[in-house]
């Protein structure tokens, strides 16, 4: 009976690969904040090279009270931050968190994190899998921001 269960488990295991095994993370970093800041921004690119569709449903970090996904939008000359409840990655899909666009809100730091420190982040997917990643904390310069929101800048200059 027990053997049969183990056999069944092994058979089923490789059929659908878990999100956490398939997704690639690139360019992950967190923006060093001024002292006593209550929120820190995190950035990264998620890439799904697989034929499956995966959904990122929740994030957490032992270094922060709460982690949320947000998007900065411009409406009618106003900056607004809108929550992104979950993020679906289609096959070969890419999601980019970058300055001035979608970003991670790292809320309520347990201690001040400075350039050179690391943020540990756990990503939870709708298939029940999860992955742990590290975001190195960096002090942003205009140039790091620029390379990160290059695409946005490109479309901006085309308007003029």
């Amino acid at each position: 009976m027990r053997l049969a269960q183990i056999f069944l488990f092994i058979c089923l295991l490789p059929v659908v690969a878990a999100a956490a095994d398939k997704l690639e993370i690139h360019d992950a970093w967190a923006r060093e904040t001024p002292p006593k800041a209550s929120v820190m921004a995190g950035y990264l690119t998620l890439y799904n090279p697989s034929p499956e569709v995966y959904t990122l449903v929740r994030l957490s970090s032992p270094d922060f009270k709460r982690v949320e996904m947000h998007r900065t939008e411009q409406h009618d000359g106003m900056h607004k931050m809108l929550p992104v409840p979950q993020l679906t990655l289609s096959s070969k899909g890419r999601a980019t968190f970058q300055p001035g666009g979608m970003h991670l809100m790292l809320i309520g730091p347990k201690k001040r994190l400075k350039a050179g420190d690391n943020v540990t982040l756990a990503l939870f997917f709708s298939d029940g899998s999860s992955m742990k990643i590290i975001l190195p904390v960096k002090k942003a310069t205009a140039n790091t921001d620029r390379t990160m929101h290059n695409n946005q800048h490109h479309s901006h200059s085309q308007q003029h």
């Binding site: 904040t33 929120v39 900065t72 931050m81 300055p99 790292l106 205009a142 921001d145």
Partner: peptide, 16 residues
């Protein structure tokens, strides 16, 4: 100051 993304990005540009 509780704005983590746009405000620090703008201040970083102004620093430059």
């Amino acid at each position: 100051t509780h704005c983590p993304d746009v405000c620090p990005t703008t201040l970083t540009e102004l620093t430059q």
